[in-house]
């Protein structure tokens, strides 16, 4: 696409708003996976590279359930339960033995998990045709649109925004209004003190992994109708999710969502529009989105909402 063909940002308000709202929707998916990364990072200082692939694995299970004529909502709940169990299982069997190892070692362990889940998913579901199509939520299909006064929005994107809001509200309620959430926050804050207060730290970490895995699974099931299910489905998502988590600040759950949405919108706008004489074009869109990430990091090295770690010497 040439500069002459690319729409100018101020000429086409409707297209601009369309792209912004669509960006909010895809950004919410990045945000959900980023939220999963943040939940684990907050309590264990580890970036979980396997987050996306765990989500991919359970989404494939969801696909099998749909093939077996299971109702969408029932399938959704089953997949969430499975994701939770998987997260807890991984924490218990793989992460706990290396808990006290240097952080880089745990990162390598999660990279190992990445390849394991990816290849297992391809081994089990890759025999038939790939990519597989995944159904959209009952709220609306991927191809139908809602026409609002100011913009049009695909129905599935609308569903994404609704569900992402639901997940955030549920997590907010859990962390701020329940005793369990308080215990989890205490564990993330200071493990030794939490243990002294009688909190079962190991169980809280396990629960954190389960919650993160569930948040990632929601992201997986929401992105699958858009870009189909394949071995590489989650790879792009996880890279953007890393960027989102870091942009928002690795220790801030709201930051993850904000970061995801910011990256989603930027990516969409840069892909579509020329800003005056500048048109970067679709092939450099991801580079531009990441450039913004790096620029933000240079001004705020711990992300938008992250806390500067203060260390006593």
């Amino acid at each position: 696409m040439d500069l002459l063909l690319a729409p100018q940002i101020w000429d086409n308000t409707k297209l601009f708003l369309d792209q912004v709202v669509a960006g909010v929707a895809t950004g919410s998916i990045y945000g959900l996976v980023a939220l999963a990364i943040v939940l684990i990072y907050r309590s264990t200082d580890v970036i979980n590279f396997a987050q996306g692939e765990m989500a991919l694995f359970v989404t494939f299970v969801g696909w099998s359930l749909v093939q077996a004529d299971v109702d969408y909502i029932f399938m959704f709940i089953l997949v969430l339960a499975l994701a939770g169990a998987l997260g807890a299982f991984v924490e218990l069997t793989v992460i706990r033995p290396v808990e006290n190892a240097p952080v880089l070692n745990i990162v390598i362990v999660t990279l190992g998990l990445f390849t394991i889940f990816n290849s297992l998913a391809l081994f089990i579901w890759g025999q038939g045709e790939l990519p597989k199509s995944f159904p959209a939520t009952p709220i609306g299909g991927e191809l139908d649109t809602f026409d609002f006064e100011l913009f049009t929005l695909r129905q599935h994107r609308f569903a994404i925004i609704i569900i992402a809001c639901g997940v955030m509200m549920a997590l907010y309620f859990l962390f701020n209004h329940t005793k369990l959430g308080l215990a989890m926050r205490a564990t993330a804050h200071n493990q030794v003190a939490a243990r002294l207060m009688g909190i079962n730290v190991g169980r809280m970490l396990m629960l954190g992994w389960a919650l993160a895995s569930m948040a990632g699974a929601v992201g997986g099931m929401l992105v699958a109708p858009i870009i189909f299910l394949d071995g590489t489905t989650m790879f792009r998502v996880i890279l953007y999710a890393f960027a989102a988590a870091v942009l928002g600040g690795l220790d801030s759950p709201p930051g993850a969502i904000v970061g995801g949405i910011a990256i989603g919108i930027t990516d969409n706008i840069v892909r579509t529009f020329a800003l005056g004489p500048i048109f970067i074009g679709p092939d450099l869109a991801s580079a531009a989105a990441l450039l913004i990430l790096v620029a933000v990091l240079l001004i705020k090295p711990t992300g938008l909402f992250g806390h500067q770690a203060v260390r006593r010497v």
Binding site: I47, V103, L239, A245, A287, L298, P301, T302
Partner: peptide, 27 residues
Amino acid sequence: PSLRLTGPYLAVATLALIIAAPSVFEH
């Protein structure tokens, strides 16, 4: 510029480098 970044922030910023580099070379 990386002087300002530490640990995972630096890791992801450098990851951005390798994601962006191929499309820049292609462009």
